[in-house]
Design a protein around this nucleic acid. Structure first.
Lengths: 91, 91
DNA sequence: TAGATATTTAGACAAATTTCTAAATATCGA
DNA sequence: TCGATATTTAGAAATTTGTCTAAATATCTA
């Protein structure tokens, strides 16, 4: 179910940028928002979509909510690409 | 420019299905449309989006237009995934 | 050249998406 | 407990997307 959600999630350049930021380490919602021109509620919305697609996880630490990459779904997406690129007979 | 277009193109499940069909071999627009419940102009629209994203190519043979995969852009998309999955220090 | 077949283009419309502002919720620290 | 800070939720507006029908274009064959 989250396979299609994940593909839709990464279709947005802002969300791909969020994923790239999180690759370097966990960040709070506010720290992520600092990298964008859009308002915080908009960033929050993108975070929600990434979370629903299981591409990121969150944990609250006091007032802050930390976001981190969840790489397991990425593997599934990669598999789809591998499958497309594989030649007939190689599968 | 077509990097973002490609990510958007593969976000749609019907378009991913078209790509999977073409993996097995080239098909005409009509043959592709036969695999879907939607009308031919809708399929044609999806083919146009995939073509603009450089994910497929077309060539006319008489009345038919054959579509085929263009795998070069897939490599670029894969690279993005690789980069996300790579751990810090491994890059 | 006329009719049939294959496909795309045009234009309309509903649904989904992206962004915003305002308000709500959660937590901290004095 | 109160005010400040961090973040999300709600709801509205503009844009984009996916699909349809009708019409146009291209090619083949008799």
């Amino acid at each position: 179910m989250s396979f299609n959600e994940a593909f839709k999630a990464i279709a947005d350049p802002n969300r791909r940028k969020i994923l790239s930021l999180l690759k370097k380490g966990d960040l709070t919602a506010g720290e992520i928002a600092d990298h964008f021109a859009m308002q915080k509620p908009s960033v929050s919305h993108h975070l929600k979509i990434l979370k629903q697609a299981d591409l990121i996880e969150d944990r609250r630490v006091g007032q802050h909510i930390y976001y981190s990459l969840n790489t397991t779904v990425f593997q599934d997406l990669m598999s789809w690409f591998y499958d497309i690129l594989q030649k007939e007979g190689e599968q």
